[in-house]
Amino acid sequence: MKVFAVGMITTPPTPEQQPQLMAKEVPHTLQLYLDGKIEQFWFRQDRPGVFFLMDVESIDEAKATVDELPLTEGGFMTFELTPVGPLAPLGRLIQKK
């Protein structure tokens, strides 16, 4: 199943906390990408945060995965999770033979 995980920074880390946190956050995120759980990722342009397109078995798996990220574990970020799928109404445009 595909899930959009929209991460929002709720409590920005201090400048002193950032190097240590990001030294853990970046490799963790890259490992999720290499494991195929995160297919694509983007930085938000409107506010601090990220968008992940995830490939997981369930919303519960997506939640467990993002909850293990250092920024989330530390209380700095929260995620909104939305399951997505094919745009089914487009099937109406296909003529059946």
Rank of each mutant, 00 (worst) to 15 (best):
L30A: 13
G75P: 00
L81G: 01
V66C: 04
M77P: 09
L32Y: 03
D60M: 03
L93F: 05
P15E: 02
W42Q: 05
G75I: 07
W42V: 12
A23P: 00
I9T: 02
W42L: 14
D60V: 10
L53K: 09
G85N: 01
E73G: 10
V84S: 04
I38R: 12
V56K: 15
P48N: 11
A88Q: 12
E39I: 04
P70L: 07
S58T: 09
V26R: 08
P19E: 08
G75D: 01
G91R: 15
D67P: 06
A23T: 00
K24W: 00
T78S: 14
P89Q: 09
S58E: 09
D55C: 06
P48R: 01
R92K: 02
M77F: 05
P70M: 13
L32I: 09
F41M: 03
P19H: 05
P89F: 12
L71E: 05
I94N: 01
A5C: 01
V56D: 05
P27D: 15
Q17P: 12
A5K: 10
G85T: 08
A62F: 05
H28R: 11
I94V: 09
T78I: 13
P27R: 01
S58W: 01
A23C: 00
A62I: 06
F51P: 02
T65Y: 02
L21R: 00
T65A: 03
P12L: 11
P12K: 12
T65K: 13
E16F: 06
A5Q: 03
D60P: 00
K96S: 14
L90P: 05
V66Y: 12
G75E: 07
V56I: 05
A62S: 05
T78V: 07
P86L: 13
K63I: 15
E39G: 13
M1L: 08
S58Q: 10
V3Q: 01
F51C: 03
G36P: 13
Q17Y: 07
K24R: 14
E25D: 15
L87T: 05
L87N: 09
L71W: 12
G91F: 06
P19Q: 03
E80V: 03
E57S: 02
K2G: 07
E61W: 15
V3E: 10
I94L: 10
Y33Q: 14
G49V: 02
T10V: 12
E80D: 13
L30T: 12
L30Y: 03
F76D: 04
R92L: 09
T65R: 05
P83C: 11
G49E: 14
Y33V: 11
R44M: 06
D35R: 11
G75Q: 01
K63S: 03
Q20P: 07
L93E: 04
S58N: 02
P83Y: 03
P27V: 13
A62W: 05
P86C: 10
E57K: 09
V66W: 04
V50I: 11
V50R: 10
D67G: 11
E73S: 11
V3F: 10
A23S: 06
Q40R: 08
D46V: 14
L30D: 08
Y33K: 06
K97A: 13
F51I: 06
A88C: 10
Q45G: 10
P12C: 14
R47G: 07
E39S: 12
G91L: 06
